[in-house]
Structure formats: structure tokens, C-alpha cells
Computed example of a mutant assay.
Amino acid sequence: MAGAEAVFFVFAVPAVVFAGVSKGGFGSGAAFASASILALVTEPGTALALMLPLLMLIDLAALKAYWGRWNLRASLLLIAGGLPGVALGAWLFSAVDADAMRVLIGAVSVGFVLWQLRGRLGLQAVAGTPLSSGAGGLAGLAVGFTSFVSHAGGPPAAVYLLSLKLRKTEYQASTVLIFWVINLAKAVPYAGLGLFTRETLMLDLLLAPFALLGAWLGVRLHHSIPERWFFALTYVLLTVTGSKLIWDGLA
């Protein structure tokens, strides 16, 4: 048993630190991968239940660092779409084809990056028109739904927010506010579905310091990396996470 616990923490500690760095500094697009890593050493449902309180702790730690620096209109639009998405995810949790949703969101994420790179590749000038409010509402719905079923709400949020060409910290602060609200909303139906157990909550207590460490590192890295490199890294993370979603869905 001790050996199994050691293997669990070998995977869990870096996964949780990674989630903290991603959410604390780089828009949370890749944070969902932490649940995927945990799913290698525990049941998928247990991995989701383990990660949610830790994600909420990271949100709270990052909120102070970015307080009031978000784009409130864009954040509220994604939250307004996200809350019904959470309810939809809770309603369809047992029946939803999560793999099909992973492929769809992954394709949108990768396609968006390619679209943004058209000008740099010399194919066509990148359009400067932000996505519409209607598209933002649909993105919010996808944020809430995919966040509920797999903690993978980061890519659809990034697609909308990046289209607005926000400044680096405005973009980051917006993601922190959005997922703080969305993750709080997810906690009640997660509890109602019986996903939280005494064991998962005890493990969360042990992993909490690593979540806070990751959030602190993420905030530090956010402020030390130039804006150009920040968005380059954000596009890389969006491509990687989108590709991972497609791979998971097809596999």
C-alpha cells in the first residue's frame, strides 16, 4: 500500500504544481492536463474530484494578485454562458459523450491558433475583428460544460479572450475571475453527485501546499515574461491542450 501511495504522489505533486503555474500565470489553458495525469494513477472520476478543490484554492490564491485588472465585460459574458454550461454538464454528466466534446473543443482550439497565425505565415492578414458577443456566449457555454466534465474549460475561454487582443495581465486576470466563479459553481453539483469523498478531501489537504506553490510560481513567471513571449507561450499551450483533447477523444 505504501508503494502505491508513493507512486500516486510521484504523479500528483508535479501535476498539481503544473496546474498552479498554468492557472496562476498562463491563462489556465493547460491546467486540465493535471486531471489527465492523475487519471493515470487513479479512477477518472476520483481525479476530477481531487482536482476541483485544488483548482479552487489556486483560483483564490491568484485572485488577489490580479484583482480588478480583468476585462469585466468579457469575463461576465463568459460567466453568463458558463453557468448554464455547468448546469448542462451536471444534468448530462452520466450520459454525455465526453470524447466527442473533447474532439470538438480541441479542433476549435487548434483551428483558432492556425487562424491567428495566417498573417505570420504569409497566407492572409489576421483579421482584427473580435468575436461577437453571441460567439462569446457560446464559448462560455462550452467553458462551463467542458469544465464540469473534464476541467477542460480553458481552451474555449482562450479562443474568445484572445480574439479581443487584451493586454497580457488583463487576459490573465480575466481567466482567473472566470474560473473562480465557474469552479465555485461546479462544487455544489460535484458534491451532489457524490464525487467528493473523505479520501479525496484528505488527499487535497496534503496536496494543497503544492497547489499554492504552483500558483505563486505562475504569478511570478507571468510578471517576468515579456508580453510577446507570454502570448506565444499561450498559443503553444492552446495548441498542445487542443491536440491532447483531440488525441484523448479519438483514443
Rank of each mutant, 00 (worst) to 15 (best):
G25W: 01
G27N: 05
G29R: 02
G29K: 02
A30C: 10
A31T: 03
A31R: 03
F32N: 03
S34F: 04
A35Y: 11
S36P: 02
I37E: 05
L38I: 04
A39P: 11
T42A: 12
A47S: 13
A47T: 10
A47W: 03
A49S: 01
A49N: 01
L57I: 06
I58K: 01
D59A: 13
Y66Q: 09
G68P: 08
G68A: 04
G68E: 03
R69P: 08
W70H: 10
N71Y: 03
R73C: 01
R73V: 12
S75N: 14
G82V: 03
L83I: 07
G85I: 15
A87H: 02
L88W: 07
L88E: 02
F93M: 02
D97S: 14
R102Q: 10
G106E: 03
G106P: 09
V108R: 04
V108F: 15
V108L: 15
S109Y: 08
V110N: 04
G111K: 10
G111N: 10
L114Q: 03
L114W: 00
L117I: 01
L117C: 08
G119V: 12
L121I: 13
L121E: 01
V126C: 06
A127G: 15
A127K: 08
P130C: 10
L131P: 00
G134W: 08
A135Y: 12
A135F: 15
G136V: 01
G136A: 06
V143H: 07
F145N: 08
F148L: 13
V149R: 08
H151W: 00
G153I: 04
P155A: 05
P155L: 09
V159E: 05
Y160E: 02
L161H: 06
